[in-house]
């Protein structure tokens, strides 16, 4: 087994709201080896974005966390503020969705790419930072003249590329991409996905890719983890999870975006009744049972753990 860049054990995250505790993540464990990629899929409220933010300790104050996160061999929750700053950007960097809001509108794109390098002293001088930012722009497929452009002068796809260049500025080992293509058009999404795949081929970059669209993940992720109500309900190699899903929720999620050309989905959209549960008010037993087409009586009382469901695949369902 390769060296691990990230190891998460029993991570639980609880927000505290006026109406009581909100368990957003309820015990998640996974490992990520150097150069590997993990796709996290789930719907709103499943805890995937909370999890992503927790991996770099970007959660709001007053949030309770338990469990362990080892990032590049260091215990994340034991890091000093200085150590934490070093881990962000240099070990792990995050690319958010909504590229317009994540960029400062009054600074040029180039300056925003240079900033993390200068803060973390990964370059010796401003000149060196300029050279490096030009290389980064080339790497993410942006013309060098756009170093001097302001965010509003760039298109959505270009802004997303700037964010990726920023995240790569300090040569991180781990890239966390939180719905980086959600707001983008089909063709631009394909461009960004191709870019991410290419970046991974060029270096030993590890990747965590978060999305609600399962099919996107088969392009960029070796492994998939499907989250529902704060827990991983199915995980395994991406193609086998996508094609041979065993958890009924994974199956529904995979069917939500039809395969074009597949006669069984023609004029037959498939979805699930009901809505994803809100983290503050989870159903008893298996949290999926109220929407599950296969639910049995026992599902209402006991919440199943992950169990083997095929080669390298595990699912949290009593039926596997």
């Amino acid at each position: 087994m390769n060296q691990l860049v990230l190891s998460v054990k029993d991570l639980a995250i609880t927000y505290h709201s006026a109406s009581g505790p909100v368990p957003a993540v309820r015990g998640v464990s996974f490992d990520l080896a150097v150069g590997d990629s993990l796709g996290l899929a789930g719907e709103s409220g499943c805890g995937k974005s909370t999890l992503a933010n927790a991996l770099l300790r970007l959660l709001p104050d007053g949030t309770t966390t338990s469990g362990e996160v080892m990032i590049d061999g260091q215990d994340l929750f034991a890091l000093s503020p200085g150590g934490l700053r070093a881990v962000r950007w240099t070990t792990g960097a995050i690319v958010f969705q909504g590229a317009l809001h994540a960029l400062n509108p009054v600074q040029t794109a180039g300056r925003q790419v240079r900033e993390p390098m200068l803060i973390h002293h990964t370059v010796g001088s401003e000149d060196e930072a300029r050279v490096r930012s030009r290389q980064l722009f080339e790497r993410v497929g942006l013309p060098a003249n756009q170093l001097d452009a302001y965010p509003h002068q760039l298109s959505g796809g270009q802004r997303q590329r700037v964010l990726i260049a920023m995240a790569l500025a300090c040569d991180p080992q781990l890239l966390i991409a939180d719905e980086p293509t959600t707001a983008l058009d089909l063709m631009v999404q394909a461009q960004v996905l191709a870019l991410i795949a290419e970046l991974r081929r060029e270096s030993s970059l590890s990747l965590i890719f978060i999305t609600h669209d399962l099919s996107v993940l088969t392009y960029v992720a070796d492994h998939l983890a499907i989250m529902y109500a704060g827990k991983i309900v199915e995980e395994g190699p991406s193609l086998s999870v996508f094609q041979n899903a065993t958890h009924p929720y994974t199956r529904a999620l995979a069917a939500a975006f039809p395969t074009i050309g597949d006669p069984s989905s023609r004029l037959a959209p498939s979805g699930l009744a009901g809505d994803p549960p809100t983290p503050g008010a989870l159903p008893s037993g298996c949290p999926f049972h109220p929407r599950c087409p296969l639910a049995e009586d026992r599902c209402q009382t006991a919440e199943p753990d992950l169990r083997p469901a095929g080669p390298g695949q595990r699912a949290a369902c009593v039926l596997v």
């Binding site: 999620l253 959209p269 979805g271």
Partner: peptide, 14 residues
């Protein structure tokens, strides 16, 4: 809309 709800709304339209 969330992925799992999508199908229900489309089915309703049909």
């Amino acid at each position: 809309l969330d992925a799992s709800i999508r199908g229900e709304i489309l089915a309703l339209m049909l």
